[in-house]
């Protein structure tokens, strides 16, 4: 069994993607003061933080809040995986009437996003939820699509996708 790893994006590509997505967020949301950016624990939080900083730099005087959400208590697959609670949820504002930009590193089956949508509702009723991901790797099992994508990457189901500030790597496990 061998593993081959391919670097898809470098650190510069990741930075450019974050800058581009933050401009898209500003363009799509003229009422920027109702937007809140929420990163999914733990892979999405650093991206959410950088998006938030970028958005607040693009628009003078903007003060878009940053939150984090842990969905481990909302998963539908406890019986399929060990329970690991990740870092805690921190939603700084009532979400009722807000536009939430939900941020994750990789969009795959969509089950994490489904769980996050359920979790968000427990913090208020958002007016809208938009989804931003660094990588869309396909293989959706639910009717969920991203609003902002860093990079679409076709993958095999068994591939592993690693996303970090230094880049994106896809590892294929060949037997």
């Amino acid at each position: 069994m061998t593993t081959t790893a391919v670097d898809i994006l470098g650190a510069d590509d990741v930075s450019r993607a974050i800058t581009r997505i933050s401009h898209e967020i500003v363009e799509r949301n003229p009422a920027l003061d109702s937007v809140v950016i929420v990163g999914m624990q733990t892979g999405g939080t650093w991206i959410a933080k950088r998006l938030c900083e970028s958005v607040n730099k693009i628009v003078e005087g903007a003060n878009v809040p940053l939150g984090a959400i842990d969905i481990s208590l909302y998963r539908d697959d406890y019986s399929l995986r060990p329970v690991v609670l990740s870092a805690p949820t921190d939603i700084p504002v009532d979400l009722t009437g807000r536009t939430v930009v939900l941020v994750d590193d990789v969009l795959f089956t969509g089950r994490t996003v489904r769980a996050a949508l359920e979790a968000l509702n427990d913090y208020g009723r958002p007016r809208a939820v938009q989804l931003a991901v660094m990588v869309d790797r396909g293989h959706r099992e639910l009717p969920i699509r991203p609003d902002y994508v860093g990079k679409n990457i076709p993958t095999h189901f068994s591939d592993e996708v690693a996303v970090g500030p230094n880049g994106v790597t896809v590892s294929a496990v060949a037997t």
């Binding site: 060990p82 994750d104 990789v106 068994s158 591939d159 496990v173």
Partner: peptide
Amino acid sequence: LFTLLGGDSVSSLTAGGEA
């Protein structure tokens, strides 16, 4: 309750990458 009942821990069924 969550620690005792929350995970049946059949980790072999997990697929690679983020779900």
